[in-house]
Design a protein around this nucleic acid. Structure first.
Lengths: 358, 358
DNA sequence: CTGAGGTGCAGAACCGGTTCTTCTGATCGA
DNA sequence: TCGATCAGAAGAACCGGTTCTGCACCTCAG
């Protein structure tokens, strides 16, 4: 066993423990613990001595030991159950993670990240994390109808924050005002003179997709606009294919709303391929904004979200839940903003009508 | 079945521990541990009994307790020190993470992810992780000349795998054959008839940038091509700005190589803005391939990497290092492949020369 | 001067595993 | 038949923290 005065110099010198601190400061281990954690019951002079020794030794508490004595593991988990290609290509996720990470490190927490292939694996992942106590809580993405994860999380007693649309889940929930944003988009298009709209949505198994589809339908009904929603898998390929299908139809829409930016970019390519001018023949709006939308020609009109802020807010709700606060409310984070750029304009027909020609 | 007579029903039923198993199986705690870990010294009948009880209780070992008794924490760390915007927008990182994650979960490891703002914070992060024993090893990205991280990792005795160019670091290193790929690109452009090439590189503080710049210079010298390298920060904005600068110069290049796909996409926009036809007036090649390259018009010629495989290989090297294997070698993962698509062609001038006109 | 009450700290128990040491009883050969 | 050998299991120590209990000492009122 290597003790104290090992002059090894290389690599694995033994890390100082709370015992070393207690011995050097001449106090009991328990006292050192109280002093280091800023808890009452320790004289100021003693506390200062302990802290000085700890600083001198460069002591860091072992997270394993902390976690073992009933305390927390100081980590939260995030499982993403989407295809690696979608995760890689949609800036949304990394942006979200950066917001999450920023808030976590402010609280001294770490992020455990997993990427899995299915809903079932995700549930299994939560079971393992809960059983091994490797995370204190989790952030849940991509809520579904009849979501299997919610009952499991409740059964496990694992603190969680639901990010997205959900009602009656009895878990803290954070969502952005998708209905408000959809309404704004529809009113904007109506004001430009559009009367026939298409909506290329994400997979309808997601609650947020259902909400958006319904919001578009309602807002369009109110504005007297005809609308059809088409389901996609969020990939550029499907975005392109559905756009082609829409444009060659007998009565093509004059505007299309895409549920992410990737599909909107693909749509621009298809429009060019078919000789349609954007925005004169076709207006295009992307639901997510990202630098990608500024690189295209013309730059994409997009609905902009404060994704880092959304992630950060979810973390702060989660930390509260971990600390035992009983919160089962639905929190609205923000209403996303529409940023008109170069892909939206009055439709050619409407322009003609306004000009009085034909 | 939930333990004992705790009829709580909701949430936090006590998780079974190895003590519960030992008691129910009628063996000592130590014996149960041996049985559960498949170690010798336990009769088969006893082992079977213990395993049955563990399965029935749904036992999972507490990772904290495991980590505490000298064992591993079963997690590896990855710190990314780049701006959130770059991380979000370059598909490379998520793709890498997905490869890492796949291999990790095959080994039963988890990924701890951090995103920081600077090299210094990254070093600090390693210190904390090592001190708290929260990871068993780390993956190091974006190597620099005089990299501060390498001596610190050695001092901490934290197993690590360097991903990228590095020599003499005395740590296992994984890299792809960037020189080979750069040579292939240059020979391809030379064959098309290009004689004036520009290279918009990443920040030169990174070793891989230096290597690429040198590789292009050498390959071009060999092929009799004139080349200039311009440094960028990897953003689309700078890619656009540098492209503009190149195209309005007195003797603009006929082909430009961009060190990532984002800048190449931005370049396509600038070319259109200045009325240059791609590929006839300008050939464009992106160093990274991603779905983005297939969405543009024309689709981008790109150098394709097996990024998930690269991440996975790095993990398997790291796991070996964690298991105590002494490996200080440099491993070449692959030579990236050039995928010619629609943005490369003979330059207009060369075409004219071939046709014999003017 | 004495006992109540409070402060400051030592000491021990505990968290849930791993691992080393010790003990028991069965097997085997001489 | 008896001791040596050995497999199998029990028991204890340990990892590095947290937290509870209890003791010694000080202060202050009566």
């Amino acid at each position: 066993m290597r003790t104290g005065s090992k002059a090894d110099g290389e690599g694995i010198q033994r890390r100082p423990t709370i015992n070393d601190i207690a011995r050097l400061a001449g106090v009991a281990k328990g006292t050192a613990s109280y002093a280091l954690n800023g808890r009452p019951g320790v004289a100021e002079a003693t506390r200062a001595r302990v802290l000085a020794v700890a600083a001198e030794l460069g002591w860091e508490p072992s997270s394993a030991a902390r976690a073992l004595s009933g305390a927390r593991s100081e980590a939260v988990g995030l499982i993403l159950a989407r295809s690696p290609e979608i995760l890689a290509f949609e800036p949304y996720f990394m942006t979200l993670i950066s917001g999450i990470e920023a808030e976590l490190s402010a609280h001294g927490y770490s992020l455990m990240l997993r990427m899995v292939g299915s809903h079932e694996e995700e549930v299994e992942g939560y079971r393992r994390w809960a059983g091994r106590r490797s995370v204190d809580g989790v952030l849940v993405q991509d809520l579904r109808t009849e979501d299997q994860r919610i009952p499991v999380l409740k059964e496990l007693g694992l603190p969680a924050v639901l990010m997205g649309i959900s009602e009656g889940a009895e878990l803290p929930t954070l969502q952005s005002d998708e209905v408000g944003a959809a309404t704004e988009v529809v009113r904007y298009l109506a004001a430009l003179g559009h009367r026939r709209l298409a909506h290329v949505s994400g997979p309808t198994m997601y609650r947020h997709t259902q909400t958006r589809v319904a919001a578009f339908r309602n807002a369009c009904a109110e504005a007297g606009i005809e609308v059809t929603s088409l389901e996609s898998d969020y990939t550029g390929e499907q975005g392109a294919q559905l756009t082609r299908q829409l444009l060659i139809a007998q009565h093509p829409p004059t505007a299309v709303m895409y549920d992410n930016d990737v599909m909107a970019v693909a749509a621009l390519g298809v429009a060019r391929e078919l000789g349609r001018d954007v925005p004169r023949d076709l207006s295009v709006i992307a639901w997510d904004d990202s630098p990608l939308c500024r690189l295209t020609h013309p730059p994409l009109t997009a609905v902009s979200h404060d994704t880092p802020g959304y992630g950060a807010r979810a973390v702060s709700l989660l930390v509260q839940a971990i600390c035992g606060e009983r919160d089962t409310g639905v929190h609205i984070y923000e209403v996303p903003r529409l940023l008109p750029r170069g892909t939206t304009a009055p439709p050619r027909m409407a322009a003609r009508e306004r000009d009085g020609s034909t």
